[in-house]
Design a protein around this nucleic acid. Structure first.
Lengths: 340, 340
DNA sequence: CTGTTAGCGCATTCAT
DNA sequence: ATGAATGCGCTAACAG
C-alpha cells in the first residue's frame, strides 16, 4: 500500500517553489512545463525532478488569466441527472466536448427555477465558456439574456418563452402526431394523455401533436382523459385510477420516459388482475429500457438523447468559434416510431 | 423575442471597464461586488448600473487566485455517464456538493485507462479540489498517488491494487453470496456466472461471493458456466448460446445492470420460444427499472447508487476539511435482496 | 539558453 | 468613504 501520508497536506506548490528547488528561475520552470523550448535538457530534468518531488501542478486558472484564454469549461444544466435520458444526453455532449478539449461542469436543477438561476450565475462567474441548458419549468425565473452576457447559451429539449437562443428540439409535434395515429390505426378512440401540459414546453408540443391526430380523425377530446402527472408514481396511480373507473380508456399516450415507467407498472398490474381482458395500449415518447419485453402493446416515439446532446454541443462550439451568424439557430432531432 | 445580438461578441468586461463606466476606481467596484461595505449607496447604484449595462461577471478564477482560495470544483470520473447507475451516483454526489457550495466537473472514461489518466491530470491542473473516481479497468494506468499530490482522491465502487485511498465499496461479497443462496434455496444447481471477472475488482468480489455460496453448498463450479461478458449485447448472446446448448443452466447470476439487461432479453426470448418450459431464473446485481415486471424469476441484489455517491462525497469533503485522520477510510454500502 | 520586467483580473493593506 | 500600491500564479516580451 502506498502511504496515504505521501499526500502533503500543505497547500499546492507554485512555479516559484519548483524554481527554488531546481535552482532555476520561475521562467525556466514555466518554459519547461510548456514543452521545454530553449531549455537545456539537463536543466529540464532538474525541473521535472523538483516537480515530481513537490507534486507540482501548473495552475490552469492563473495560466488562462495571464494568456487571456477562456476557462476550457462548458456548463450543462439539466433537470435531473438521475434520469437515464439526461445521462445519454450528457454523454453526447461529453463526446463533442472532448473533441474540442473542453471539460464539462454539470448542474442539476431538480426542476427548481431558483436553483437554475443560481447555477447559471455561478457558471457565468466561473468563466465558463458556454452553457447548454434544459430549462426548468417554463423558465420564467431565468435571468434575462443580458445577465448571461458573454456566455453563449444553448437551449436543449425545451424552449423559454421570449428568449431567442440557439436551440435543439426534438420533433415533438410530428412525432406525437404519428405515434397517436398508430393508436388510431389500431382502432383506439378513447386515449388518455398523460403529462403536465401546463408547465413544460416540450409536453405542450407533444400534446399539440396528440390533439392534432385526434382532430384529424374527428375524435373529440374529453377533459377527463387529459391527466396531469409529473413523475412515475403519479402516472402509475393515475393510470390505475382510470383503468378501474367506468368507461376506461383503451390506450394511453405517455409524454416522457418517467411517466412511461409509471404507466407500464399500472398497465401490467391491471393485466395481471384481469387475465383474458384486452391489454391497454401505450404510445410513449422516449425509449425505456426493457419496455419492449413487457408484452404490452407499445408504440414508441423514439429519438436518441445522445444525439440531442451532440447537436446542442455542436451549436455551442460553433457559437464559441464565432463561425456562425448572430441569429439564433434551430436544430430539430427526428423521431422514429417503433411498435412492440 | 429578446435580441440575440444583445449578447456582445467582445470579450468579457473587467473591474476596470466597470470602474471607468461608473466613474469610480476599480477598488470601489470590487468592494461593491463584495457586499458594498464602505461604499456609499448612490455610488453602489452607479456601479450596479454599469455592471448591468456591460454584462459584467466577477472573474471567479482571478478572485480565487488572489484570495488563495481553492477552485470550488470537485471532479467526478466515471466509466459511463450513459449508464443510469452512474446517473444516480452523480446525483448523490451533486446533492452533497451543493451543501458544500461546490460545483461538479464530470469526466467519462469509457473504461479507457488512458483517457482516465488524461482526465485526472487535467483535473489536477484545473485546481480541482478533489476527485471521486470509479477506476477504469484495474487502474494500472493510474498515475501514482504522488502524481495526484494535493488532490484528494476517493475511490468508489472499485479498488485499485496497491493504492490506499478513501474508498466506498458496495457489500459485493456478502450481497452476492446471499443472492446466490436464494437461487440454491430454489433448487438450482447449475448456475452460470455472467461477468468479466478478470478485469474489474467489483466483479471479482461478486464472483467471490457467488463461489462461496456454491462451495458451502458443496456444488462444483464448472468452467463452462463462468461466462465472460462486458455489456448487454454480449450477455444476451452468451445467455442465448447457453440456453440453447446441451444441459443448459437453470439459473444465471448477472454481475451488473448492463449484463442484466442482456440476460433478460435472452431469457424472455427463450421463454417465448419455449412456452410451457420452466423459465430460467436470474440473480442480478443492481436494480434495473421494470425488470420486476418481466415475469422472470428474479433475485435482485440491490443497493442505492445515489447512496454510494453520497458516501463518496462525504469522504471527500471530510478529507478536504482536514477533519479526519490521515489513514484512508473505508465505507461499505449495504446490499438488500428482493425477489420477484 | 536564461533571467528580469511587467501585467492578466482581482482584493488586501495602507494611505488619504 | 475612496484610491494607490502591491501581489496571488503565471508567462509574453524583452534583455543579456
Amino acid at each position: 500500500m502506498r502511504e496515504a501520508s505521501s499526500v502533503p497536506s500543505s497547500s499546492a506548490p507554485t512555479v516559484r517553489d519548483v524554481a527554488v528547488r531546481a535552482g532555476v528561475s520561475p521562467m525556466t520552470v514555466s518554459r519547461t512545463m510548456s514543452g521545454g523550448l530553449n531549455v537545456r535538457p539537463e536543466v529540464q530534468e532538474r525541473v521535472f525532478k523538483a516537480v515530481q518531488e513537490l507534486g507540482y501542478w501548473r495552475n490552469h486558472s492563473a495560466r488562462n488569466i495571464r494568456l487571456g484564454r477562456p476557462s476550457g469549461l462548458v456548463g450543462i444544466v439539466v433537470t435531473n441527472i438521475g434520469n437515464p435520458y439526461y445521462g445519454e444526453f450528457a454523454l453526447g455532449i461529453e463526446g463533442i466536448a472532448e473533441e474540442y478539449g473542453r471539460q464539462i461542469v454539470v448542474g442539476n436543477t431538480g426542476e427548481d427555477p431558483g436553483r437554475e438561476r443560481e447555477l447559471l450565475t455561478d457558471f457565468a462567474a466561473r468563466q465558463i465558456e458556454g452553457v447548454i441548458l434544459v430549462p426548468a419549468g417554463n423558465g420564467l425565473e431565468l435571468p434575462g439574456s443580458n445577465r448571461l452576457a458573454h456566455v453563449p447559451l444553448v437551449l436543449a429539449s425545451r424552449t423559454i418563452d421570449g428568449l431567442a437562443a440557439d436551440t435543439v428540439l426534438v420533433d415533438d409535434i410530428e412525432g406525437a402526431r404519428s405515434g397517436t395515429q398508430c393508436l388510431l390505426d389500431d382502432g383506439h378512440t378513447r386515449i388518455a394523455f398523460l403529462g403536465d401540459a401546463a408547465g413544460i414546453s416540450t409536453t405542450r408540443r407533444r400534446l399539440h401533436g396528440f390533439s392534432t391526430a385526434l382532430s384529424i380523425a374527428g375524435i373529440a377530446q374529453e377533459e377527463v382523459l387529459q391527466v396531469p402527472c409529473r413523475d412515475a408514481p403519479t402516472a402509475q396511480s393515475e393510470v390505475a385510477r382510470l383503468l378501474n373507473a367506468a368507461d376506461p380508456p383503451t390506450a394511453f399516450f405517455s409524454s416522457n420516459n418517467r411517466i412511461t415507467v409509471g404507466a407500464l407498472r399500472a398497465i401490467c398490474e391491471y393485466r395481471n388482475a384481469h387475465p383474458g381482458f384486452p391489454v391497454p395500449a401505450l404510445a410513449c415518447f422516449d425509449d425505456v429500457e426493457l419496455a419492449d419485453l413487457l408484452q404490452v402493446p407499445l408504440v414508441v416515439m423514439s429519438h436518441d438523447p445522445k444525439e440531442l446532446g451532440e447537436q446542442a454541443a455542436r451549436l455551442l462550439f460553433d457559437r464559441l468559434a464565432g463561425s456562425v451568424p448572430a441569429e439564433p439557430r434551430d436544430v430539430r432531432v427526428a423521431v422514429t416510431i417503433h411498435r412492440y
